[in-house]
Design a protein around this nucleic acid. Structure first.
Lengths: 153, 153
DNA sequence: TAAGAAACGTCAATATGGCTGACATAAATT
DNA sequence: AATTTATGTCAGCCATATTGACGTTTCTTA
């Protein structure tokens, strides 16, 4: 049993997501809003259906959070060019500011951790994390991540 | 920005905890039950207060979940020897079986991922994950983990 | 062109797992 | 004897998730 890694993952992820919590509270948002904002900012023009695949939640759950972010001007929708049924999602400058603020905190933690291992080891960590992810039935975001990764390697 | 690691952590953790979900459902339990069972099994004689520190939830939230696990015979309480106010927690054979079943699935994923990097790199991953964890104000479980880690290194 | 499927939105009801505040008890400490 | 600590519990609230049903618009297909 890899009790060591099981528990290290638990604590590492707990503190990693904990970084954002305080800041989110100031905006009146929760972790659900963060996840949505993050992927919309990072993958502009994401469809609602893509977001559902990534977050693995139901349309109804996403609906509430997404509506808030739209109403408060963190995200905008644009009708798809090819398919006018689609609502493509984009972060506004306001939304972008929130995402980068949160990512800056998380990046600091990551850089601090990477500083404790040598430069070559950073790629080892990336390879390990990639190998932890299910590759069968990848969503659109994961496809992009795996594609880019193989280019760099 | 370390967008790469931020997202890899998200997906890796999503799939990592996802392993247990199906199995838990068969027992009528959720992730909260898993977390409690895991730490009680791994650190026998854990106090309720220690568990609250580790899980970072309130007494009331823990109470509900713990009561179920006690009622259904997955955990037993024993009065502390030195301090009779304490209720020390222990996993029963039934609880032990559940924890090891779930840990076996997660260990398979971890071993599969570690197989993609060389043996020396496993220690790199462990060092990275440890460095991602807050070290100020560590709880009893984290103290144990960090202490054991420094012995091995 | 008519029928069906797909993408999205929304209503209602429900469950889980968090939270705060208040209060109670037993046991240890001062 | 008074206070503090460890734990339990009641009541109520909130965020985020669920299922099932239904509606609209738009694209695809027979």
């Amino acid at each position: 049993m890899r009790w060591d890694i099981i528990e290290l993952l638990f604590f590492a992820y707990r503190d990693f997501v904990g970084d954002a919590d305080q800041e989110l509270e100031a905006f009146g948002f929760g972790r659900a809003h963060h996840r949505v904002m993050h992927f919309v900012y990072r993958y502009p023009g994401l469809k609602v259906a893509d977001l559902l695949d990534v977050l693995r939640i139901t349309k109804q759950s996403l609906g509430r959070v997404l509506k808030q972010l739209l109403d408060e001007g963190y995200i905008v929708q644009k009708t798809g060019n090819n398919d006018r049924r689609q609502r493509l999602l984009f972060a506004t400058p306001k939304g972008e500011a929130l995402v980068t603020k949160l990512a800056t905190m998380q990046t600091k933690r990551i850089e601090r951790a990477l500083a404790e291992i040598d430069a070559a080891s950073a790629e080892t960590v990336r390879r390990f994390l990639r190998a932890m992810i299910d590759r069968d039935d990848p969503d659109k975001v994961l496809e992009t991540i795996f594609k880019n990764a193989s280019v760099k390697e």
